[in-house]
């Protein structure tokens, strides 16, 4: 396998990991954010958590694997991105910590205050994570100040954080939050039953419009703030167009109560948007806003051919196995969840 082929392959593999993460953790971030609003009574909240209880931890591993794979295949990308986004990533970690611990600890005491506090930590942690990821990805597409030595240039982390909250970064963050909320609501209509299912359905109708507005802003912003026009042109190609079509079509399925299709449509939007993002980036992995020559690309940021070859062999063996057993768990736990006391697992 040639070096360039391997570098491209690993770019694609890492893109797949991020896409998988957005698709999977997208709905459990959404469910997390909706938790305190959709669930009025304790059993209802428990039922909502149980829709993702089996899966959220496995979903989160997609992020860890994306991080690990980036480290192994593109050490410079990993080093520049993680050190550059230092404080936002710190906040992301805090969000993930609060969320992860709360899933396990919220039911350990019957005290309503205790439970309510953890429920809000799940919601806030999920919100923080979604917002920060969206903001970071938008800034990756827009470009960040990277110098000749591949280091992020900024007087300090606070300045970096504020500069990441530029209009496009904010739009990216809000669009991610909005789409994940919709994705989460759709997932809940699939997994819940009874009154909660109705409530989730009603909510997803409203959330659709918020998501649509956010995505339109994101699309406009992408033309204004990124180099999509020079790199790809006014016509962005079939994939981004399909992604928007998928999102727009979801309202039809939501109204028709075709819950599976509505979920699939928003999933398709998320997947295709991520694909579009990585197509816009390729072969760059970090765009320098200071000088194009200082971009990190799959060629100057990658590991050696030997390491990429070894990792490719390992990935070829184990990725199918992981995909098979994760899919199997979704199949095993496909039943709808109700608020019947006897059915709830704590």
């Amino acid at each position: 396998m040639s070096y360039e082929f391997l570098q491209t392959l690993w770019f694609i593999l890492i893109a797949i990991l991020w896409i998988g993460f957005y698709f999977l953790e997208g709905f459990d971030f959404g469910v997390g954010m909706l938790l305190p609003f959709l669930g009025k009574k304790d059993e209802e909240r428990r039922a909502i958590i149980n829709t993702i209880g089996t899966f959220w931890d496995g979903n989160e591993v997609w992020l860890l694997t994306a991080g690990g794979a980036t480290f192994a295949a593109f050490p410079h990308w990993y080093a520049t991105m993680f050190s550059g986004f230092y404080l936002p990533l710190f906040l992301l970690l805090v969000g993930l910590i609060l969320r992860g611990v709360s899933f396990e600890y919220r039911s350990k005491s019957p005290d309503p205050k205790w439970r309510n506090r953890f429920d809000w930590m799940i919601a806030i942690g999920s919100f923080l994570a979604a917002l920060l990821l969206g903001t970071a990805f938008a800034n990756l597409a827009k470009g960040v100040p990277i110098d000749a030595n591949m280091n992020y240039v900024s007087p300090n982390g606070l300045v970096t954080t504020i500069s990441l909250l530029n209009p496009y970064g904010l739009i990216g963050g809000l669009a991610t939050v909005a789409v994940f909320l919709l994705h989460g609501a759709n997932f809940l209509t699939l997994k819940l039953d009874g009154e909660l299912r109705e409530r989730a359905h009603a909510l997803s109708k409203k959330l659709y419009w918020i998501a649509l507005v956010a995505v339109i802003l994101l699309t406009i912003g992408t033309y204004v703030y990124t180099d999509v026009l020079t790199k790809i042109g006014v016509n962005p190609g079939i994939i981004p167009i399909l992604s928007v079509v998928a999102l727009v079509s979801s309202i039809y399925f939501i109204n028709q109560r075709r819950e599976g299709r509505a979920f699939a449509a928003v999933s398709a939007y998320i997947v295709l948007t991520q694909v579009s993002f990585f197509m816009l980036m390729f072969p760059r992995v970090m765009i320098s806003s200071l000088k194009p020559a200082w971009n990190l690309t799959i060629y100057n940021a990658s590991s050696s051919q030997y390491t990429l070859t070894a990792m490719t062999i390992i990935a070829l063996i184990f990725v199918p196995i992981v995909l098979a057993y994760q899919a199997w768990t979704y199949y095993m736990f496909r039943k709808r969840i109700t608020v019947e006391k006897k059915d709830l697992v704590y």
């Binding site: 690990g68 794979a69 192994a72 295949a73 410079h76 990993y78 390491t307 390992i314 992981v322």
Partner: peptide, 13 residues
């Protein structure tokens, strides 16, 4: 990273 990243990625996977 060329060396150390590999076991971390394998661990996750």
């Amino acid at each position: 990273g060329d060396i150390f990243g590999a076991p971390l990625a394998i661990e996750a996977l």
